[in-house]
Every structure is written in structure tokens, then in C-alpha cells.
Design a binder for these strands. Structure first.
Lengths: 314, 314
DNA sequence: TGCATCGATGACTACGTAGTCATAAGGTCG
DNA sequence: CGACCTTATGACTACGTAGTCATCGATGCA
């Protein structure tokens, strides 16, 4: 047996005579031999690994990651996770990413700014920005239609009789927040409904909970409807308002954004814009792995659908 | 400049004269050179990557994974994710795992049976079974103290006046279910309280929701308390019962197990056994990466603490 | 029987790094 | 000022694979 034959048995078995193949297989079993993917990657210049740069927190990202992992497994690829707790860590993370010659990179975080995107560009690694509108034009991107989604939600609450509204965002400087707010304002404007922006300070349950109590205490400034920029924050808002005796939809109409599984939980039953996450992930991976030619438009925007929950049942 | 000098600049900079170092750095910047981690791994027989085999579903695993990723990032290691939707996929996954020469492997799923653990053993890869009691003795493991936790919860509800109880598990054949049920039965037994086991059929919100409605409809078989084997199922149970007009703690005492973030959300405010997940993860990684000598006991069991929520506020 | 063809296999090499050893340049001290 | 030591650098090799090319035996056909 030569090393070459063994290699063939594991990489292109049909090029080896069946008898030899079996002998090699048996010997491998006996000796506990397993092909070395590292060496294979070095030689083949292909790792079968896709990297993902994501924030270390947040229900939404956990949910998305799970889907990426599932779909990658189906394609016989692995997911290498690069998570970061602080935006300041992103640069370090990028340098680490650069060292692994990944087959593709998923950039999923508002903390990845233009400078970082430029660095990614340099790496000459197939990249997709996932739900990060600010990256559009700089890097191929796949995004849910934030503006249209927000417009739909706004139209929905106007339809339910809202004459005043507040938009609760997570972090004002993020492009998702801006797009979602803009969509809401645009639609509400055509109906003569004003909409103030309020910043919760984070994309977290706790931030939503706190800001809701402030809103509740500020009696001068009640609104018919509260549009929350993301589901996780919305859950906090729902609970914070409840704490003050304000219940949706009785006292206020309330919507989220994202369509997390928990939004369907009966305890919240939130009206929200459901992202077609499976589809988004599929688009992202197609773009990353199958494409090659940038023939099609590099920025994909996929519409979401309204999930009608109890919180806007007038 | 020789290749050797360049290598030194990136792996042990202090062995290179400052002037040379800067020249190399500058040239690298100019040419876009980045060290190749794949080649490095091949040579060094060390990948700086830790693998994790986890189910593709479930809030709990998402939560744990996030923590692993965070702690690994601090140790300058990466997390390579191997997720599977069906238990039948585990064998395939294991073969893939074997090919990557990982620095360590986290086996976290009840679907990894003795046969699979034996295979893992063969790989001669540092391994830790995470919250998978059945692996104890076969592979080093880190687990929360399921029995003691369940006992504590049982004592708690007895203290709150429960005279009858039901245990709602996810999947009866899993070792976590069994340990948690056993703990409950043991403690309740000493107080003369019977405790039936009911299987939800999955570790999911939906399973809990459905089983709760069955329980509610079975009027002959009401109990003072329901001990649910995991938080995610418990959320479903809470909502399923509410749907039938049964509210905790008014009509029944209710507890979960795990201590997910959502348990603290005011909407549920669940009494549950909080796992010290940070600590568990730390133990797991220490065992995996720092240890080397199996001097200390290989099976670590860490106690949890009760989180007192509204659902047992008699 | 001789020649062309084809399938199976082996020898060899490159992928990019890190460690070993050798070598050259500079510095110290008697 | 020379023997010795230190520091910086280069040449070389192995890690385990896959692809290229060469080799060899068998088969088919005239």
C-alpha cells in the first residue's frame, strides 16, 4: 500500500480497485486511522468551514446562528464561531479570522463598521453581511426589508385606530434601528400620525423593561401605539408596561420586529414582523458558497410578513 | 528576509531585532500577508479550536453555547459547531469531528449514547461531556447536581404546602429526566407526597403547552404542584395552564429547572433551579484545556441554587 | 503473437508553517 | 587583541494530504 492509494480510498474511492479499497479500510479501522482535515485543507486550499462573526448576546443572533449551523451541516460544512462581547474586540476577531482560510464569512453585527468591512474586503474571502443594512454596497449583503416591514406594521396599527405612536429602538446609531424607524415614520406620516423615537439603550429584555417604565410614568406623553424595534426589547416593554398596569392591546397597541419563536408563545403573543430567517440564511449561504460569479445583484432584500398577535387585537 | 525570520516575527516577536521586525511588519501590511492558521495547525499539531456537538434546537443549548463561545474567545480559542437535528446524524457528525484535530471536544447532548462515547474515546481527543449524566464514568463530565436540585425544589414546594405533585419530563429515556425525577420522588417520599411522572415528549415549549392542557382537562388528577423538568417546557406548561384558566401560584405551584434568562422575565417569573452555567462552562474548559493530568476526579458535579419566582409564592 | 489501450498503483512534490541546527556578526573580558 | 559568548538570521525539514506524472500488468484486437 502506498500513501497515495490510501489517500484515494478516502477522497475518490471509485479510482481504487474494490479489493484494495477494502483492505485499506480494514487497516484504517484496525489502526484507528482517520484522514486529517487540517492537512487536507492546507493542500486543497479549502477548509469546508464557514466563519461567523456575531455578538455574544441576544436571542435573535442565537436563533440565526442555530439556523446557519443547521443549513451548513446539510451542506457538509462546519460553522466556526467568532463571538465578541464588546465592539472593540471586533478588530482582534477579524485578525484571527484572517488566519483561518475559511470558505466563507458571515458578518452579522451592527458593530462591524465601514473600516472593518474594508478590512474584510482585503481578506479576499467570500463574505456576506447578514441583516446589516449599513454594509450594503460595501460587501454582498442579505437583509430583511426593514423599511417595508416597519411600514406594514405602521399601517397595521393605524388600521387598528392608532392616532399617536412611539418607536422604541435599541441603539439609535445602528442601521437597522434607523431603517425601521424611517419606515414607520414614512407610513405614519401619510396618515398624519406623529412618531417619536425613544432609545432603549440596548437590544435586550432589560433595556425594554426599563424604558417601558419610564414611558408609563411619563403621563403627558402617552401614545396609542408603541412600535418596538426588535422582539427581545418588545418582551421587556410588554412586561415593563404590565408592571405599571398598562396592558396591550387594552391600553396600547404594541408591535415587535423579528419574529422570534418566543413571540408566538402565548404569554406574549406579540404582533411582530416575522423575518423569513430560513430563507435569509439560505440566500446568504447560496451567495457565499454556490455563487462565484457576482452576476446577480449583490444586495438581497427579502420581505417579511406580519405575524398578527394579541397585542394589536383592538 | 528569510521565511524563517518572517515566521518568528509572528510567533515569537521577541526573538527578532526590532528593526527587522518593523520591516517585516511593514512588508506584510503592504503585501496583505497574514499567517496561515491551517499550516500552523498542521505543523504544531494544535488547532486552537474546540468542537462542540450539540442539538440544533433548544433555548438551553443556545444559552450554553453562547457562554462557551465567550469563554473560549477569552482564551484565544475558537468554537467549531457541530449541530444535528436528528439523533441518527450523530454518528456522521462524529466522523467529521474526528478529521479535524481539535484541541478539545464538548459533547453536550443526551443523544450521544454509550456507543458514541466509546467512539469518542477512540479519537484520543480531550473530551468533556456537558450536562450529560449518562456519560459519567465513560468520559470526563461536568454536570449540575440534578438530584440535589430536584430535591431542593421538592422541599421548597412541600414547604409551600403541596400535598400532591406531578413531574413533567421532556423525554423519559434521558438521564437528566431520570435524575431530576428521582430527586423529586426521593424528597417528596419522605414527606409522604406521591409524584407521578408525565412525559411531554420533547424538551420544547410546544410539548409543555400541549401536555399542560391534557393535565388541565384531566380533572380527576389535579395536583397541588407541578415540577417541570426544564424551563423551556415549563414556559409552555405555564401558558397551557393559563389557557385553561389555571394560574400559578393561585391554583397550582409550579417549578422549572435550568435557570434560563427567560425564567427571570416578569411575564413568567418562574421558580426554578438555576444552574451556575458560567461555572459549569469554566469547569468544562479547565478540564479540557488546562488539565492534562487526570489527577482530579473526572466527573464534576456542581450544585445549583433555587431561584424563587412568583410561581410558588403561596 | 505483437501492439495499442486502459485501469490500478506508486513515486514525487507543494501547500505554509515552526522548530532544529548552523552560521555570521557583534560584544565582552582578560 | 584573540578566545569566547551572545544575538540575529538563514537553511533545511516535517507535518499529512492531493494532484501530476510515470509505471506496470492486463486486456482487446488485428
Amino acid at each position: 500500500m502506498s500513501q497515495a492509494t490510501v489517500a484515494r480510498v478516502f477522497s475518490s474511492p471509485d479510482k481504487v480497485a474494490p479489493a484494495t479499497r477494502e483492505k485499506v479500510r480494514a487497516a484504517a479501522d484496525r489502526l484507528g486511522y482517520v484522514p486529517n482535515a487540517i492537512a487536507r485543507s492546507l493542500k486543497a486550499q479549502r477548509t469546508d468551514i464557514v466563519g461567523a462573526i456575531v455578538p455574544a448576546f441576544g436571542e435573535y443572533w442565537q436563533h440565526v446562528l442555530t439556523l446557519f449551523s443547521r443549513q451548513l451541516t446539510e451542506r457538509r460544512k462546519q460553522l466556526l464561531l467568532f463571538s465578541f462581547a464588546e465592539p472593540s474586540q471586533v478588530n482582534d476577531v477579524l485578525e484571527t479570522v484572517a488566519r483561518y482560510r475559511l470558505d466563507g464569512l458571515i458578518a452579522a453585527s451592527a458593530s462591524i463598521g465601514p473600516a472593518q468591512l474594508a478590512r474584510i474586503e482585503q481578506l479576499a474571502m467570500p463574505t456576506v453581511a447578514f441583516n446589516q443594512p449599513a454594509a450594503a454596497g460595501l460587501v454582498p449583503s442579505v437583509t430583511v426589508d426593514n423599511e417595508a416591514g416597519s411600514q406594514a406594521l405602521a399601517a397595521h396599527i393605524v388600521d387598528r385606530g392608532a392616532r399617536s405612536a412611539i418607536f422604541v429602538g435599541g441603539i439609535a446609531s445602528t442601521s437597522t434601528d434607523q431603517q425601521r424607524y424611517r419606515g414607520a415614520v414614512a407610513e405614519l406620516g401619510t396618515h398624519g400620525v406623529a412618531c417619536r423615537y425613544v432609545e432603549a439603550g440596548a437590544f435586550s429584555y432589560e433595556a425594554g423593561y426599563k424604558i417601558a417604565q419610564h414611558l408609563a410614568d411619563d403621563v403627558d406623553d402617552r401614545a396609542d401605539a408603541i412600535l418596538v424595534g426588535s422582539d427581545e426589547v418588545a418582551f421587556g416593554v410588554v412586561d415593563g408596561l404590565r408592571e405599571r398596569g398598562i396592558e396591550a392591546p387594552r391600553d396600547v397597541l404594541l408591535t415587535g420586529f423579528d419574529g422570534l419563536p418566543q413571540a408566538s408563545w402565548v404569554g406574549y403573543d406579540l404582533t411582530t414582523l416575522e423575518q423569513p430567517v430560513e430563507l435569509l440564511v439560505e440566500h446568504a449561504l447560496t451567495r457565499l458558497l454556490d455563487d462565484g460569479h457576482a452576476s446577480e445583484s449583490t444586495d438581497v432584500v427579502v420581505p417579511g410578513t406580519i405575524r398578527q398577535g394579541r397585542t394589536t387585537n383592538a
